[in-house]
Design a protein around this nucleic acid. Structure first.
Length: 294
DNA sequence: TTCCAGGAGAGAG
DNA sequence: CTCTCTCATGGA
């Protein structure tokens, strides 16, 4: 067991349970998940993270890897201070203090958010679990068993029936086409990782099944582009009712959000998104009464 | 039964 | 450009 000390302004719970990763399971006080081919067991005690890995890696490999994955090197208090611009953001930041944006493996994030469209988190998790069981490699950490996320070449040769059996629904061909594009080099993952936010987003959106919202999720949750702003129905609703107080196009929301929150808009978005889900009675908040929009 | 879920694409206007 | 309809699936 390896410890990561002096981890301040970090919440393992909010980071792993805020809908950016679909691979973590909480058992008692610990989170089990598969990241890039090995199982991690992570628990947080104050400012200490206790980590176990199914791979035989020493502290000098594991700690830098997880610090990057969990975004621990970022000055989050400074970033949050910059987007703490109103009472509502203040509440979200206070409530979810320490939530960070993960830096997840690129291909898994591409595939996961292709599957996320018109879907809910519980079902997305189930689909990804079944895909991993069916097409991934088995892994063990003590008594805990899981599977690696399947590589593009495996999914590229899967039949539609096999993908449908995992519950992908009509997204099966989107997933397989993306996998084939990675294999063929049409979607060059390593070079996309080097691109700017807007370049990477444009390349991703050339794939069938990746629109603006999914591309932004990939850019934000995998590539570290904090200027990315995934606009789903809830983020749209928040900006329309709380900030703009009128119906607005995605373009208008995007423009407002960038001028209002600045470069850390992606982080701000994640706090807003998770806050409305954590507080399911968000409409009851006295300052956020639902406004009738024509 | 209908509605909804971290949407996207095709078609019409 | 915007609006509308449909897509597969399962839980509420």
């Amino acid at each position: 067991m390896i410890q990561i000390q002096n981890v301040t302004d970090f919440s393992l719970k909010y980071t792993l349970e805020s809908g950016q990763s679909f691979r973590w399971n909480r058992i008692d006080n610990a989170y089990y998940g598969v990241v890039e081919g090995r199982i991690f067991k992570i628990s947080q005690e104050g400012t200490t993270l206790c980590v176990e890995s199914s791979a035989s890696e020493d502290e000098n490999q594991l700690v830098p890897f997880l610090r990057h994955y969990l975004d621990l090197a970022r000055d989050v208090p400074k970033l949050l201070a910059e987007v703490n611009t109103d009472a509502y953001m203040h509440r979200a930041i206070e409530r979810l203090w320490g939530m960070r944006i993960l830096n997840q493996e690129f291909w898994e994030t591409v595939a996961s958010f292709i599957l996320s469209q018109n879907n809910n988190v519980a079902r997305i998790r189930g689909i990804i679990r079944r895909l991993s069981e069916r097409f991934g490699e088995p892994l063990m950490l003590a008594e805990y068993a899981d599977y690696s996320f399947p590589n593009p070449d495996v999914l590229a040769t899967a039949t539609e029936a096999e993908l449908l059996a995992c519950g992908t629904g009509y997204r099966a061909n989107y997933l397989r086409n993306a996998a084939q594009a990675v294999v063929s080099g049409e979607l060059p993952l390593t070079s996309v990782k080097q691109m700017s936010y807007l370049e990477a987003k444009a390349v991703l959106m050339r794939r069938d099944g990746i629109g603006e919202k999914v591309a932004d999720c990939i850019c934000l949750f995998s590539l570290g582009h904090l200027a990315a702003l995934p606009i789903d129905v809830w983020i749209k609703r928040i900006f329309e009712t709380l900030y703009l107080r009128r119906r607005a196009t995605h373009r208008e929301i995007r423009q407002f959000a960038h001028s209002y929150f600045g470069d850390g808009v992606g982080y701000a978005q994640q706090y807003l998104f998770h806050y409305v889900h954590e507080c399911s009675n968000w409409a009851d908040a006295e300052h956020l009464s639902l406004i009738e929009l024509e």
